[in-house]
Computed example of a mutant assay.
Amino acid sequence: MYKKISFLTLGAALIAAPVLAAPGGAKADTDGNGTLSRAEAQAHAAERFAKMDYNKDGKIDAADRTAKRAEMQAKKFASLDADGNGSISQAEWTNQNAERAAKRAERVAKRAEAGEAGDGKRHGMRGHGKRGARHAMHGGMMAKADTNGDKAISQAEFQVAALARFDAADANKDGQVTADERKAQRSEWRAKRAAPAAPAS
């Protein structure tokens, strides 16, 4: 149970795992020919691993989640500490809240202009639901990538998982994944998520 929860949390915190969730996309297609080769998928996996390994210790684990959180907190503090004196005054806090409220009002106005429903609560709930589903999916894939069960993912494990996703998407086994093959794989995942869970025996 602990392993499952820790990896779900890690997957959510690292947002991560697009390379595990799919064999790659436009960014991975470095030669821009509209298809993804296995070599491109492997290079993209190495790039993603490097970005996710925040503390650069050669593995992805809870320590990276902590490092990422600390980085985000530091950036947030810096954005609040307008004069850079190492502390946040009442005025700085008030200004930040005012700016946030103004941006929120601007987003609401843009949605109204676009003819979208103004029920912010409903939009928020729907958004959180989608993010939660993605995080759960990524968390499950991260757990599967941890083949030795040490609650950490090495670069080798990450590569194996990424290439397994590539091979699964490569329907005709020609060493290339086309946009149509990626679309078919996404449709398959959506169908699996929509399918009712099997009753416990």
Rank of each mutant, 00 (worst) to 15 (best):
K110Q: 14
H44D: 10
D61E: 07
M137T: 13
S37Y: 02
L80F: 01
A168Y: 06
R69S: 08
E71L: 10
T66R: 12
M142S: 10
M72V: 09
A98M: 12
T147S: 15
A74K: 14
A22N: 12
Q73R: 13
E92Q: 07
P196C: 04
K59M: 03
A82S: 14
P196S: 09
V177C: 05
R69E: 06
F166A: 10
A152W: 08
T9Q: 14
W93E: 14
A133I: 11
T30M: 01
G115L: 13
R131K: 07
E116Y: 11
A17H: 11
M52K: 09
R69Q: 12
P199T: 08
K173Y: 02
A184P: 03
Q159F: 04
H138W: 01
D146F: 00
I88D: 05
A82Y: 08
A22W: 03
K51W: 04
A117V: 10
R104I: 05
A21R: 05
H138K: 11
G58L: 03
A191Q: 13
A161D: 03
I60P: 15
L80G: 02
G86V: 08
A194I: 06
D81Q: 00
S37I: 08
T9E: 14
K59T: 12
A16V: 06
Q90V: 15
R190I: 06
S187N: 15
A114P: 04
A194T: 03
Q176E: 01
D150W: 02
F158H: 09
A145E: 00
A169C: 10
L8F: 10
R134M: 09
G175N: 03
D64S: 02
A13L: 12
K110C: 10
V19D: 11
D53M: 04
L163D: 04
V160W: 07
A191E: 14
A39D: 05
G149A: 03
A105L: 08
G86W: 00
